[in-house]
Design a protein around this nucleic acid. Structure first.
Lengths: 143, 143
DNA sequence: AGGTAATAGTTAACTAAGGTAATTAAAGGG
DNA sequence: CCCTTTAATTACCTTAGTTAACTATTACCT
């Protein structure tokens, strides 16, 4: 696996840059997209949910959410437990999701150019494995 | 390739964190490692070389190098062209390289757990391809 | 029920890392 | 010899994360 880290890290930067370029259309960047995506898939959620899922500390999530609130992409909905803050996508937020989804999917396709279907499946499979190897060797403060 | 970006980005953070933990032993982080690695492989170089190789703007490289200089990991060597700054690893810098190299290689091994040799080769191959796809679709201000 | 402990969210302060724009110094070319 | 280009630097801004400390609310346990 020697050289793997080098390759991986060199893919990272141009990739985020491209993603951020796409999301700049809505004054967002990739970290905000993660929240939007989560809410699209999971529906109404708390900040703690999102924090746990992405393994990102809560203050970071607070900031992402504040931005999304300002932009009317998400809204707060009342919850029984007054300690937690339930949020969900607004109508406009759904719109932003749809539009960005398209652009991001296109990016994914363009990345996959020159890779066979099998290869693509394999990459996903491997990444998931790497992620597990990484997480299992962590302090696991999130579990 | 749908879902690829998501997986990729979720591997990234724990990975850098681990790398930074390793390098923290020398008050460094991964971005500094890149410079050390480059100097180890290429020998005496200029900041412009490093900037071009990693596709990172020069001010960023200046900062990385300043840190490494402070820590006596690199040293400036006189060059004919007084406009460029030639740098190379010091003896201590080589030591830091060796020690970190070990730890990083171990990390790579532990990541590769559960992947066959073939799979590992394939991951590297694919990452390189992705990198090319990304770069070829860029403004290519570095070429 | 009442007091303590845990949890959700926030704020503040810090760190890492990058980018652009402007500046300085040196080199090169007509 | 002047003008342009190039290498490095500085200053300033942005993204994104972390830890520590605080508030409010809920849960637990005697």
């Amino acid at each position: 696996m020697e050289g793997f880290l080098r390759s991986f890290m060199q893919v990272y930067r141009p990739l985020v840059t491209k993603l951020n370029d796409i999301l700049a259309a809505y004054q967002l960047s990739y970290s905000h997209w993660q929240v939007i995506y989560y809410l699209k898939v999971e529906g109404r959620s708390t900040l703690a949910d999102i924090s746990a899922h992405y393994r990102v500390e809560r203050p970071s999530i607070t900031r992402r959410v504040q931005r999304l609130e300002e932009l009317d992409i998400i809204e707060v909905v009342p919850s029984e437990n007054r300690r937690e803050k339930n949020i969900q996508l607004t109508e406009y937020g759904n719109e932003v999701y749809q539009k960005s989804r398209q652009a991001i999917t296109e990016l994914e396709y363009s990345l996959a150019e020159g890779l066979t279907k099998q290869e693509q499946d394999f990459v996903r499979h491997t990444l998931r494995k790497l992620q597990q190897n990484l997480i299992s060797k962590e302090g696991n403060k999130f579990e």
